[in-house]
Write a protein that binds this DNA or RNA. Structure first.
Length: 383
DNA sequence: AACGCGTGGCC
DNA sequence: TGGCCAAGCGT
């Protein structure tokens, strides 16, 4: 009997590889797994906007937006995006600020910067099309193996597999993976490769993700309605809830930040554009910085504004205090009204600075925590 | 190879 | 309701 053998949890350390666990999937069951999943998909697959046609550009946009982001969150962004950037050319010709503004609120902003760069790269090197092959796709910023597989299977119906969070969970349960998912990535790629339907790769990949998103849920999987129930080793062994093993999360560090809403005699407000590359790169913000030990908020803001912009301000009343959680830390922003005193503002620690009116603020892309400052400011100034 | 990278939904 | 989680990629 043919079997697909997956060797998991090898020991490394220079010596000969030691097989700690061997998981086998009966190769003769693969056609049945494919057919039962595809049949389930025709009955229960989701009706999603990016499944309405096979335009590679739209498929690409959806794949990027969906990285680490729920379908429900993506849908309105996807529609707005296609109105503003209906074609690959229009995206390539847009400014980064336009692109970031359309992305505002979606998070992981490197995705938007990469999308913009990749569009320009496609125009320069790929005749203005989303390249229909794996090698070329992987050279584009923001496109890794799973996204490339998603694009090639969805847009071109090519038999390229994917391994996203949903697929990892489904496959880990299917074979009752005895180690954490992250320790078995090469094996899971082999498995998703082996399972992929060569006849219907588009539907198969979409079906696999729908199964993970609708049935094989992290917390409460509906095994009774799963087309793979009779093949699922986790279900057979009663280990569905333990697989995949949850990853340990450590508590997020906390940062205290002083933030300045600086207004000049004309009532204009000073904002700065964050440097490319790092956290929230390319987005605008109200200037400020970390409160040092033993420092008051007022002292911090006065110092930071001098260091970052080379100007003097008087720190006045508090405007708002905001707690905000990022992916790897959380902050408390102590936001104060400030009055501009002297000096010519310079972009010492940012890419650009601007004096803008209250109305103009909404033309710039801001991170979420800063849009809350803008709302508070509008309330304060219209009273 | 582990870590940096946002935000909102969900309970 | 605070914590977990989501169609990953780049470095």
């Amino acid at each position: 009997m043919k079997t697909l053998e997956l060797f998991l949890g090898r020991e490394s350390a220079g010596e000969e590889l030691t097989v700690m666990n061997k998981v086998q999937l009966n190769a003769t069951s693969i056609p049945h797994l494919q057919q039962s999943l595809l049949q389930w998909y025709t009955l229960f697959g989701r009706d999603l906007p990016w499944r309405h046609n096979q335009d590679p550009y739209k498929i690409w946009i959806s794949e990027i937006m969906l990285q680490q982001t729920q379908v429900k969150t993506v849908i309105p962004y996807f529609h707005r995006w296609l109105i503003e950037f209906p074609t690959l050319i229009s995206l390539a010709n847009a400014s980064q600020q336009q692109v970031l503004k359309a992305w505002e609120g979606l998070g992981y902003y490197a995705r938007a910067r990469n999308l913009h760069q990749a569009a320009q790269q496609m125009v320069r090197c790929h005749t203005g099309e989303v390249p229909p092959n794996l090698q070329s796709l992987l050279t584009l910023p923001g496109i890794g193996r799973t996204t490339a597989g998603g694009i090639l299977s969805s847009a071109y119906n090519q038999p390229i597999s994917i391994l996203d969070t949903n697929v990892k969970r489904v496959l880990a349960r299917l074979i009752a993976l005895p180690v954490p998912v992250n320790q078995a990535i090469p094996d899971l790629w082999k498995l998703t490769d082996q399972l992929l339907s060569q006849d219907q790769p588009r539907d198969f990949n979409q079906a696999l993700m729908d199964l993970g998103a609708m049935v094989c849920l992290p917390k409460h999987p509906s095994c009774s309605s799963c087309p793979w129930q009779s093949h699922c080793q986790a279900h057979i062994l009663g280990k569905t809830m333990e697989i995949p093993s949850a990853k340990v999360r450590q508590t997020l560090p906390h940062k205290l930040i002083g933030v300045a809403v600086i207004r000049n005699q004309n009532g204009e407000i000073l904002i700065d554009r964050r440097r490319q590359g790092g956290l929230l790169g390319g987005l605008w913000e109200f200037p400020g910085g970390k409160i040092e030990p033993g420092e008051t908020v007022e002292e911090c803001i006065h110092r930071e504004i001098q260091e970052e912009l080379g100007i003097l301000v008087t720190v006045e009343d508090p405007l708002i205090t905001i707690d905000h959680t990022y992916s790897h830390f959380w902050v408390t922003l102590y936001v104060h009204h400030c009055q501009y005193l002297s000096g010519e503002p310079q972009p010492l620690e940012c890419d650009e600075i601007r004096w803008v009116t209250l109305e103009q603020l909404t033309d710039f892309p801001f991170p979420k925590a800063n849009t809350r400052i803008i709302e508070a400011l509008k309330e304060a100034l219209t009273e």
